[in-house]
């Protein structure tokens, strides 16, 4: 099973927004209509997945486990960069038999929002706004055109919803609805279906 997928991550002044569609495909068959593509890794960290579902699920489980273990053994909060580097090492360790995944890993390190993107081979880059998955060209086009530099969460939300919606219109690998997660210093909040449909109206 494959996540054709559109996922978006945007770093804002006061937090980070992650957004995804919900469609899971197997070839041209819609295998699931409420696929979960956002993983909450920690109190203040989350990730999105795109690509082969089995690979992504296993790596997400492993990251969650390692984050817990590190918190228990070091008794210190783990930085988002460290989680992203761990994921990068996992991916690169399989360089010649790659995990077919793309991740956005985001987290609040105290007040500071941080977001990293990983590809199949473990390439790790820090980004301000990004899209992954088959819907990327459509979504990134909307973000490039409308998104302000260094936006607030309130400014970015409607643009992000619009970007995912545009990708769902033209990318058959994406569809079925939108999930949006907001990371703030105070914690993680997920938008309800109603809040998302209001965003699309505005």
């Amino acid at each position: 099973m494959f996540k054709g997928t559109t996922t978006i991550g945007v770093v804002c002044k006061n937090g980070i927004i992650l957004a995804t569609d919900r469609r899971v495909t197997s070839g041209i068959y819609v295998a699931h209509k409420r696929g979960r593509k956002i993983y909450i890794l920690d109190d203040n960290k989350a990730a999105t997945i795109a690509g082969l579902v089995a690979d992504a699920q296993m790596i997400m489980d492993y990251l969650k486990y390692q984050i817990n273990l590190m918190k228990l053994t070091h008794k210190l909060p783990i930085s988002t960069r460290a989680v992203a580097t761990l994921a990068s090492n996992i991916l690169f360790s399989s360089r010649y038999y790659p995990y077919i995944v793309q991740f956005i890993i985001a987290g609040m390190d105290g007040d500071e929002p941080k977001m990293y993107v990983l590809d199949w081979f473990g390439t790790l880059t820090e980004e301000k706004f990004v899209a992954t998955g088959s819907g990327t060209p459509y979504a990134i086009g909307v973000l490039e055109a409308i998104l302000k530099t260094n936006p607030t969460i309130e400014e970015a939300l409607p643009v992000i919803a619009k970007a995912v919606k545009s990708a769902m219109e033209r990318d058959p690998g994406s569809g079925e609805g939108i999930d949006i997660l907001i990371l703030r210093k105070e914690g993680i909040k997920e938008l309800s279906d109603e809040e998302i449909s209001n965003l699309l109206k505005s």
């Binding site: 099973m1 899971v24 197997s26 068959y29 295998a31 699931h32 696929g35 082969l52 579902v53 089995a54 690979d55 699920q57 296993m58």
Partner: peptide, 22 residues
């Protein structure tokens, strides 16, 4: 739950698999 060949795990209310699944 439904699992594919590689072990991806998804929960659903109804599932159909195989060539006749569609």
């Amino acid at each position: 739950f439904v699992l594919d060949q590689l072990g991806s795990l998804l929960e659903d209310k109804y599932i159909a698999l195989g060539t006749g699944g569609v």
